Simulated scan of single mutants.
Amino acid sequence: MLGKELLSYVDHTLLRPTATWDDIKEICDAGVAYKTASVCIPPDFVASAHEAYPDLNVCTVIGFPLGYETTEVKVAETKQALAEGASEIDMVINLGDVKQGDFEAVTNEIGALKEACGDKILKVIIETCYLTDSEKVALCKCITNGGADYIKTSTGFGSGGASLEDIRLFKKHIGPNVKIKAAGGIRSISDMKAYIAEGCSRIGASAAVELLKDHLDEEV
């Protein structure tokens, strides 16, 4: 795989709480220059990014990073982000609902955000580091039944990130219309290639452009 092909899987990400508009412009410039799948940025920068880069695929996060906002708040966040120019939404589930076994509430919330998204992409962050395997399997079903487009491993703000074992588990239990995004702790070219080889359609990474920008037309 060429470096530029690998970058086409990447959501070029900057979610640092101290990020400034100058920082956001830098990753948007890189997203345009290197044709990443999207740039994933905080919600308060979506409108400015869309105005400055109207052809760029802008992704943002909802209920981030803890996920315990009410569904109504997450829906309102989603609608505002889409109205301001986001075309992809990465939401965080309510982990409290998971831990108390209320998977119906999780499914309903995913469905509500997917309804708000319409034909825009919805990715669901389940924060695998806090979950048992049985909870991960149950969430694969929630995401499938809720109509989301992707299951995503991690926020990058939890106690752990993506693992290949979780990707393999997801593949066994998600529906045929659900894709996989790996994020959290993916810091090397070999990591990115390994996750894609396991079936991931997207990689969330902040380091990908720096790693690959000098190898665009080379096998990596």
Rank of each mutant, 00 (worst) to 15 (best):
L2P: 13
G3L: 09
A49V: 09
S134F: 03
K99T: 14
G161M: 07
D44L: 04
F64P: 01
T36V: 11
G118C: 13
D55V: 01
A138P: 05
E135F: 04
S48R: 13
I143S: 02
L2V: 15
A205D: 07
A37F: 01
K136R: 05
K114R: 10
V106I: 15
K152S: 01
A83L: 11
H173P: 07
Y150L: 07
Q100A: 02
G158W: 07
E109S: 15
I167V: 15
I196A: 12
V10F: 06
Q80M: 10
A37K: 03
D11M: 05
V32A: 01
L6Q: 12
Y9P: 03
A37S: 04
T13L: 06
T71N: 07
Y195S: 06
G199S: 03
S154I: 00
G199V: 01
G158C: 11
E210H: 15
E218W: 09
I62K: 03
P42D: 09
D55Q: 10
D149G: 04
T78V: 10
L95C: 07
L139P: 03
G175R: 10
R16N: 15
F45R: 03
K4S: 14
P43F: 03
G147K: 04
Y34C: 06
H173W: 05
K120F: 08
S8M: 11
A182M: 11
S8C: 10
A194H: 09
E127C: 08
A49N: 05
G3H: 11
A116V: 00
K141R: 15
M91F: 09
I93L: 12
F45S: 02
L216R: 06
A112C: 08
Q100S: 11
I24Y: 05
E51A: 13
D97H: 13
V178I: 14
A19M: 14
V220W: 10
T153R: 07
Q80A: 11
I41M: 00
G147W: 00
Y68E: 14
M91N: 06
T70M: 12
A49L: 08
S159E: 11
I62N: 00
G204N: 13
G146A: 07
Y68I: 12
P43Q: 11
G175C: 09
W21Y: 15
R16Y: 11
C117G: 09
D55E: 08
E26S: 12
L66M: 14
T18E: 14
G85K: 05
Y9C: 08
L7G: 05
S201M: 02
R202I: 11
G175V: 12
M192Y: 03
L66D: 09
V10G: 05
D97C: 09
N94D: 07
C59Y: 03
V178H: 02
D23Q: 14
D166Q: 09
A86W: 03
P176H: 12
S154W: 01
V209I: 14
A47I: 03
L139E: 01
T132N: 03
A194T: 10
V124F: 08
